[in-house]
Structure formats: structure tokens, C-alpha cells
């Protein structure tokens, strides 16, 4: 059975993620309402404006349910703004992140839009050539908790240590850059595998049923 994947469609480049999943034969849904979280095995939080996405997640009552779904084993992937949204904490005053993965993140680490760039990036778990990584006003991972696996880093430069731009913890994935703006689907395939694991996980199945009932009783 193929996993069902949702792309958070409150704001940002969700259409590009849907297109990428389509290229590898995965149908996905646009998630605009919290009830839809019970229909999916994995959720992608796309690029966009992190302050806007966090604000909309609160406005439309996603925060508690999203946390419960991730704790129950739903796969989750944040790209750029999505990484900021799911971080434990930020070096910046805004927004307040959701603490769904144990990383500290700094926004706009590389500077403003005129400093945005592309580069070749070797990523652990991705076979073959390096990926073309598109960094747009991109964040960086400044510190990682114990169970965080670093998948890709930018090298140390001058007085700056080597820092992570792609990390994974269980079924939660976070990347500073935008694979959805390229034609390279390898990271999307990796995420689909995480969602496949979630689909056959009994804890997740039971939790989905419970959360569906709880959400229904709230509405």
C-alpha cells in the first residue's frame, strides 16, 4: 500500500511539493483543515513565510493535534520555513516554533534575498550525485539534540563551525533548502519511505482512530 501524504496548504509553495510527489507516483492532498491529519501518514510543511504559517496554524487550531499526530508516529518534513515552524527554538524573537524536532534554528542565516543562492550538497542516505540545493533566505540548524541525525552540513568557514542544513529524527525530517524547486525527487522518495513506515505502524493506526474521535467531539 502506498502511503497517503498531505502537504500543508495554508501558505507557501505547496503546489510544488504536490508536483514532486506526483512525479514519483504518489497522490497527495492539500491540508487546510486539522481533521485531514487523520487521513494521512506523512505531512510536508512547505517553504513559505514561517511567521505567516505559524500564525495560520494557531488561527486554525492545528497546533495540539499536529503535535499528537507527530508523537503517534506520523512522518513530518519541513522545508525552509517548514524547518523553522517545527524547530524546538529559534535564535530570533519571531515566530514561536512548534517544537516537533529537537533542533535550534536561526532564520535568514545567509542574509537577505540578494544573498540567496544554489549549491551542490552531498546528503547522507541519498545515493549518487550531490543534490542541487536552493537556499532562499534560508535558515540553519545551530544546535541539535541527542537523537538528531545530521544528513548534510555546510563546511566550517573562518570562525564559524560546520553547521547542519538537513537533519532527521525518527520519522521527522527538516531541510534548510528547497528540493521542491528542482526536478530531483530523491529526498521526496526518502520521505515517502518514512511515511510507509508510519502507515504500517500499529501505534499510529490506533492513535489516528483516537485523534479522529477527539477532533470530531471538539467540532
Amino acid at each position: 500500500m502506498r502511503p497517503r501524504i498531505g502537504v500543508l496548504a495554508l501558505q507557501g509553495d505547496f503546489a510544488e511539493h504536490i508536483q514532486m510527489l506526483d512525479m514519483i507516483g504518489i497522490d497527495s492532498i492539500e491540508v487546510r483543515k486539522v481533521q485531514q491529519l487523520s487521513e494521512i501518514d506523512g505531512l510536508i510543511i512547505p517553504g513559505g513565510e514561517s511567521t505567516t504559517i505559524v500564525k495560520l496554524l494557531h488561527m486554525f487550531d492545528f497546533v495540539d493535534d499536529l503535535k499528537s499526530h507527530v508523537e503517534s508516529g506520523m512522518a513530518l518534513w519541513g522545508t525552509c520555513a517548514g524547518m523553522i515552524v517545527i524547530a524546538r527554538e529559534l535564535a530570533d524573537p519571531y515566530p514561536t516554533p512548534l517544537n516537533l524536532i529537537d533542533i535550534g534554528v536561526a532564520r535568514n542565516y545567509f542574509g537577505r534575498q540578494v544573498d540567496s543562492f544554489e549549491a551542490e550538497l552531498k546528503i547522507k542516505g541519498i545515493e549518487g550525485d550531490p543534490m542541487r540545493a536552493v537556499f532562499i533566505r534560508a535558515p540553519i540548524v545551530q544546535d541539535t539534540g541527542d537523537d538528531i541525525e545530521t544528513l548534510a552540513t555546510v563546511p566550517a568557514t573562518g570562525d564559524h563551525p560546520e553547521q547542519a542544513v538537513a537533519v532527521k529524527s525518527g520519522r521527522v525530517l527538516a531541510t534548510s533548502f528547497h528540493p521542491e524547486l528542482t526536478q530531483d525527487t530523491r529526498l521526496h522518495s526518502l520521505f515517502v519511505k518514512l511515511a510507509e513506515d508510519a502507515r504500517i505502524d500499529e501505534n499510529r493506526t490506533n492513535a489516528k482512530r483516537r485523534l479522529t474521535e477527539e477532533t470530531a467531539s471538539k467540532v
Binding site: G12, D13, F117, E118, I136
Partner: peptide, 13 residues
Amino acid sequence: RVKGGLAQMLKGG
């Protein structure tokens, strides 16, 4: 791609 990419991030906004 980087220039047009920022506009992609503004979509739905």
C-alpha cells in the same frame, strides 16, 4: 531560480 523561488514562497499570501 532563486529570484523566482522567493515569489513561490509568497504564494497563498
